Simulated scan of single mutants.
Amino acid sequence: MELAYWIVAGLLAVFYLYAGGKKAVQSRERLQPMMGWVDTIPMPLVRTIGALEILGAIGLILPPLTGIAAWLAVAAAVGLVLIQVGGIYVHVSRGEGRLIGLNIALLITAAAAAWLATTWL
């Protein structure tokens, strides 16, 4: 189970460091082609989402790796689940239900990371 956690957490961390980093630093115009929803969300909120994604990625890896407050990995995974719930809500409210596939996959993966973390922490 520990190996499964590290694989899932590692993949999520890479994804969220990339996506969160883009949201945290790029302009609305640079984000728009890949993330059409940024046109209706205030940029401070987009930046906050990016920062939370980066913190979630760090929280998946650093606490279990150091053995300090390893329970934070569960909290980080649950936080990433909640981010995806919000993403699904935004897409559905904009009539973009066909775009929620990635959100659902990330939600399931983050939920799996939370479950895997509880099995060995």
Rank of each mutant, 00 (worst) to 15 (best):
Y89S: 12
L99H: 14
I49V: 14
A114W: 02
A24I: 01
G56R: 01
E53H: 05
G86W: 04
L11N: 12
Y18S: 11
G56N: 03
V25T: 15
I68Q: 14
A113M: 08
V90T: 15
I61V: 15
P64R: 02
A13P: 02
L11V: 11
R47Q: 11
W120P: 04
K23P: 00
P42G: 06
L55A: 15
M35N: 13
G87A: 13
R94N: 14
L62H: 13
L72R: 12
V25A: 10
Y5G: 04
P63K: 10
I108N: 05
I7R: 14
L72S: 07
W120Y: 11
V78D: 03
P42N: 07
L116P: 00
T109K: 04
G56Q: 02
G86Q: 10
L60W: 03
G59A: 08
L80W: 00
S93I: 03
L121M: 13
R47A: 03
A70K: 07
P44A: 00
A75G: 06
P33F: 06
E2F: 04
L72K: 13
G59Y: 01
G87E: 04
I108L: 14
D39Y: 06
E29K: 10
P63A: 10
S27V: 06
I7A: 13
W37L: 05
L55W: 06
A75K: 09
I49S: 15
A117D: 00
I7K: 14
M35F: 08
G67I: 07
L106F: 08
L116C: 07
I104R: 09
V85G: 09
P63M: 06
W37E: 15
G67F: 06
T66F: 06
T66C: 07
A110D: 09
T118E: 14
G36P: 04
E53F: 02
I41L: 09
V90R: 14
N103C: 05
L60E: 01
T118C: 06
A76M: 08
V8E: 01
G67D: 10
A69T: 10
S27Q: 10
P33A: 09
G95H: 08
W71A: 11
E96R: 14
T48R: 11
L99A: 12
G95T: 02
I100S: 02
G67H: 09
A70I: 06
A112P: 10
A77I: 03
V25R: 15
E53Q: 15
I58C: 08
Y5C: 06
W120G: 08
Y89P: 00
